[in-house]
Computed example of a mutant assay.
Amino acid sequence: MTSMNQGHLTFLASPEWAETLRTRLLPWLREAAELGDDVLEVGPGPGLTTDLLLGLTDHVTAVEIDADLARELAARLDGPRVTVVHGDATAVDLPADRFSAATCFTMLHHVESPEAQDRLFARVCQLLRPGGVFVGADSVASDEMREFHVDDTYVPVDPGTLELRLTAAGFTDINVVSPPGEGHFRFTARRPNA
């Protein structure tokens, strides 16, 4: 089970975080991949990333493990363009081969172990259509990030091993970028066409 401290949750729902997503994540996302018509979002939290995705696709299925966050997001956005699912994305009951794209933004480090992260990668690959794209971003491990995550689940992903892990999960065309000094990494990967 993942967890986040209250300060972290407050920050993820803040106007400052919304602005960071709009000015830093969104331009990269537009360049990185065409998301298509049906996007799976893993770990939307308060849903500021869901708001961004609605400008890039016809439909978002947001899978959130935290019951309170899922309920709040559903109350705000559930409708013809957004489906909110409360559940664990490693085992969520959704049809294989459905989604044109899958996303996860600053949530991988909240997955409780590297093994659970790998199960998540494999499940996402199953849920994507052949040729579907997986895009994500997360923070790089640092003392500052560890302090910010006191009383959180905090299992940072090493961007240096991510390509191998995504390959093992079934992905190809993997690109992992970790700009020096920026404290984050971004990645794209594709489910093979057949």
Rank of each mutant, 00 (worst) to 15 (best):
M1Y: 14
M1L: 13
T2N: 04
M4A: 14
G7W: 14
L9Q: 11
T10H: 15
F11S: 04
L12M: 14
P15I: 09
E16P: 10
E16F: 10
E19M: 08
E19Q: 08
T20Q: 10
L25D: 00
L25F: 03
A33Y: 02
L35G: 12
G36A: 03
D37A: 15
V39P: 11
L40V: 06
G43C: 02
P44F: 02
P44T: 06
P46Y: 09
P46L: 10
G47S: 05
L48F: 08
L48Y: 03
D51Y: 02
D51N: 04
L52G: 01
L53V: 00
L53K: 00
L54V: 03
G55D: 12
G55F: 09
G55L: 09
G55V: 06
L56F: 07
T57K: 12
D58L: 13
H59K: 14
V60N: 01
E64H: 09
E64Y: 07
I65W: 09
I65R: 12
A67M: 12
L69T: 10
L73A: 02
R76Q: 14
G79W: 15
P80I: 13
R81K: 15
T83Q: 15
V84T: 07
H86F: 04
H86T: 08
A89P: 07
V92G: 13
A96N: 13
F99Y: 13
F99K: 02
F105E: 00
F105C: 04
M107A: 06
M107Q: 02
L108P: 06
L108W: 09
H109D: 05
H110G: 05
V111M: 07
V111G: 07
E112L: 06
S113Y: 10
S113D: 06
S113N: 10
S113K: 11
A116R: 13
D118M: 04
R119F: 15
L120T: 08
A122T: 07
R123T: 12
R123P: 14
C125P: 01
Q126C: 06
L127R: 05
R129F: 08
P130L: 03
G131S: 09
G131T: 06
V133M: 11
V135Q: 02
A137C: 15
A137R: 00
D138T: 02
S139M: 13
S142C: 02
S142W: 04
M145S: 07
M145I: 08
E147Q: 12
H149Q: 04
H149W: 07
D151I: 08
V155S: 06
V155M: 05
P156N: 13
V157K: 05
P159H: 12
P159S: 11
G160S: 07
L162K: 00
L164Q: 11
T167A: 01
A168E: 03
F171P: 00
I174D: 01
V177A: 15
P179E: 13
P180Y: 10
G183M: 13
F187P: 07
R191Q: 02
R191C: 00
P192W: 15
